[in-house]
Amino acid sequence: MIQSLTSIFSKITKSKTYLRPPGAVPEDEFISRCIKCSKCAQVCSYNSIKILHLNAGKDFGTPVIEAKDIPCYLCMECPRICPSGALDNALVDKEKVRMGLAVIDESKCLPFLGVICRSCYDECPIHRVAIVLEDELLPRIDAETCTGCGICESVCPAEEIAITIKPLSQLADKRK
């Protein structure tokens, strides 16, 4: 119990878990494979991919996506260009991307507070599938089809962003 407690705290506070570009292999493998060449960031025409600074410690130089600022628009340019296999070169279908999973905090999400809002639903690139509306009002995530691109997080108009992406690395035990 104590062990798991510590590990949960360390996960949500100390070592940050990053949202990696589409096609990223599991985090441990990603870190060992990524040669920090920045090619994925260069090919990203939306500036979605950022390269971590020195203060990121061992993760310095690796690519990340801050979905709340600029999400991944799933143009699928970066996986094929990765020279190291840290991103899966064979991944071409945006529907097959699994970077993470959108999670809704119902205590912040406007429709759960009785306010009509469909921003995430309208902007989701796996339109009407990865996010569905219960009773045409409440957004629900379909874990099977959500790519984790973070477009929903980038447009959420709730006072505090109510839909966020849990990166793949945090979900390792939940889904592959």
Binding site: I2, L5, T6, F9, K14
Partner: peptide, 9 residues
């Protein structure tokens, strides 16, 4: 955070 953990223990 360490204090939080200590307290939990």
């Amino acid at each position: 955070i360490e204090d939080v953990e200590k307290l939990s223990k």
